[in-house]
Simulated assay, not measured.
Amino acid sequence: MEMKSLTAETRKRISLRGTGMYAAIAEQLREMILEGELPPGAHIDEKALCEQFDISRTPLREALKTLVTEGHVTHRQHMGFQVAPISKDEIGAIFEVLHGLEETAGRLAAQRIDDKQMRVLLERHRTMEAYHREGKRTAYYRANQKVHQQIVDVAGNAVLSDLYASLMSKIHRARGAANADVLRWSESLGEHGAILDALSRRDGACLARLLREHSEHTAAEVMKVLQATSGN
């Protein structure tokens, strides 16, 4: 399994001693899984990772145990650690819930967002546009997720925010595995523009509808790609 070389900043974090060491390793592995660098179902080569990170097996094991509790990694005796597989049925079910959460967040956000929060969202949208022009898909997707989470957060409901973030972490992994360069992009950016326009007008009904439709379009594309890559 070929892995990307670590940046100097990452090496510095991973070289930390004490309790921070395994957390830094877990953070790097989590990112590799979420971005699809470690694909679903892949066996985790502990020896290769120890060499890559220049660490012993003990902190690596602690990091992997953390990822097991998060559901990103599985462990079976005599078989070692494995990247958790993605269930198309589970992802489909999660999207069904997310559609409703997006719609609810839209109605509440239109009522509760303030001018400062709106300015931050508009600035992030401009950043997304720049990433789109420059062809930076990974950076674009991360900015995209920040915009969606902020819209949910300004709805002012902590339960809604926590549930949305938890479910989106699973969708993030599915999208990384599905290979973001085949997902719709320009269409999605246009939808984001319409969403922010509705939010700036504080039009809750329109915003709720647009967010739900945007979520449904994204779900259809992700499920199509997962179906194609699974071969089923």
Rank of each mutant, 00 (worst) to 15 (best):
R76Y: 04
A26D: 04
L60K: 00
V83K: 01
I55K: 03
G80I: 02
P59F: 06
F81D: 03
E70F: 13
I25Q: 08
M79Y: 04
Y22E: 10
V97Y: 05
G106N: 06
L98G: 03
G80Y: 02
I86K: 00
G41M: 01
L64D: 08
L98W: 03
L101W: 10
G41E: 04
F53R: 02
E96G: 14
G41P: 01
M21N: 06
D54H: 00
A63T: 02
I94L: 03
G80R: 14
L108R: 13
K116P: 00
P39S: 04
A24M: 14
Q82I: 10
T19F: 03
R30D: 11
M32A: 14
A48P: 14
E46N: 15
I55E: 04
R30T: 09
L49W: 10
I33W: 04
L67D: 08
E46P: 12
I94A: 01
H99A: 06
F81Q: 07
D114C: 08
T74V: 12
P39W: 05
H78T: 11
M32H: 13
E51R: 07
L60W: 00
L101K: 11
A93M: 13
A48Q: 11
A48T: 11
H43T: 06
A105S: 15
G100W: 08
A42L: 07
E96M: 11
T104M: 07
L60T: 00
H75W: 13
R61F: 05
L108G: 03
F81W: 12
S87L: 06
E46F: 04
G100N: 09
H99Y: 10
I86T: 06
E31L: 08
G36S: 01
K88F: 10
E35A: 10
R30E: 13
H78E: 12
K88Y: 07
M32V: 05
A93H: 10
A23V: 12
T19W: 02
G20I: 02
E35R: 10
H72A: 11
M79E: 14
G100A: 05
K47W: 09
R17K: 15
I33P: 05
C50G: 05
E102T: 09
